[in-house]
């Protein structure tokens, strides 16, 4: 079953064309890693998928429910009500967490389920505590984000996204703002989600993580997907010269 289908995505900022016709398909239960050099358009692709940016051309559908379609050569967005329902299908974990600093950890995780999904408070709290426990942060429920380490903040933000019960979860370089030793604890959490068959799209520079955890890898450069395929193939035996160069650069580090 296809959870996400993006087709022919074009996006420009002014004169700068950042996405030049990108396709991305994600099957239920799969983990797709998006790799590639900085400036290649990975974040922009995720921001288009999560409706933070509007595309210039292309279509985006979640489980067959269209957010954007092409009509006579133009990208046309669905009605606000339809987009609201599409938004319930995905979650996004930001590079810099974007936790709400004025709320406790627990409130960060349970507020959207109450305010947006209209869950009863007691139920939302129980579920939030469940996710915090899963993240190993049950004892931090009453703390404020400023009292947590980066790794802990990122795990709270994963719990916050999970609490909305998304069908698919996007991560934009979830460990890039973290020290190496904190990176591990976040990658471990994402890996455990993969083992539970959570559908995920992860933009990452952690090649060994991408190789081990993902089903598919897409290599993006210059606003296009240069190469995509099974993780083992793309990372160990890339067919494209640009992919090979990029990965070689990594191995030399």
């Amino acid at each position: 079953m296809t959870l996400l289908e993006m087709k022919g995505i074009h996006k420009s900022f002014g004169d700068l064309e950042v996405l030049k016709g990108v396709d991305l398909t994600v099957e239920k239960g799969h983990v797709v890693s998006v790799i590639g050099p900085s400036g290649g358009g990975k974040s922009t692709l995720l921001r288009c998928a999560t409706l933070l940016e509007t595309v210039d051309a292309g279509s985006i559908a979640y489980s067959g429910e269209y957010a954007v379609t092409m009509e006579s050569g133009r990208a046309v967005y669905a009605s606000p009500a339809a987009l609201k329902s599409v938004r319930r299908r995905f979650g996004l974990v930001f590079q810099n967490f974007n936790l709400f600093p004025h709320w406790s950890v627990l409130r960060n995780v349970m507020d959207a389920p109450v305010s947006v999904l209209k869950l009863p408070k007691a139920e939302a709290r129980d579920r939030a505590m469940g996710f915090l426990e899963k993240m190993g942060l049950a004892d931090k429920a009453g703390a404020y984000p400023c009292q947590l380490s980066g790794g802990q903040q990122q795990r709270v933000s994963i719990a916050r996204a999970l609490a909305m019960d998304p069908e698919i979860l996007f991560f934009d370089e979830p460990t890039s703002a973290l020290d190496p030793e904190l990176t591990v604890e976040v990658l471990r959490v994402i890996r455990s989600l993969a083992e539970e068959h959570m559908t995920m799209v992860v933009v990452t520079h952690e090649m060994s993580f991408a190789a081990k955890v993902s089903d598919h890898v897409a290599f993006m450069d210059g606003g296009v997907v240069v190469e995509s395929g099974p993780a083992a193939q793309v990372i160990s035996a890339p067919t494209q010269e640009r992919t090979r160069k990029f990965l070689e650069g990594f191995n030399q580090l």
């Binding site: 933070l52 938004r87 319930r88 974007n98 959207a112 305010s115 947006v116």
Partner: peptide
Amino acid sequence: PVGQNEAAQVLGYSKGQAFIKI
């Protein structure tokens, strides 16, 4: 930071809710 509004938007808060609550 704009990230606050973006996080709220992705979580499904309405513009009004995001402004008042966050």
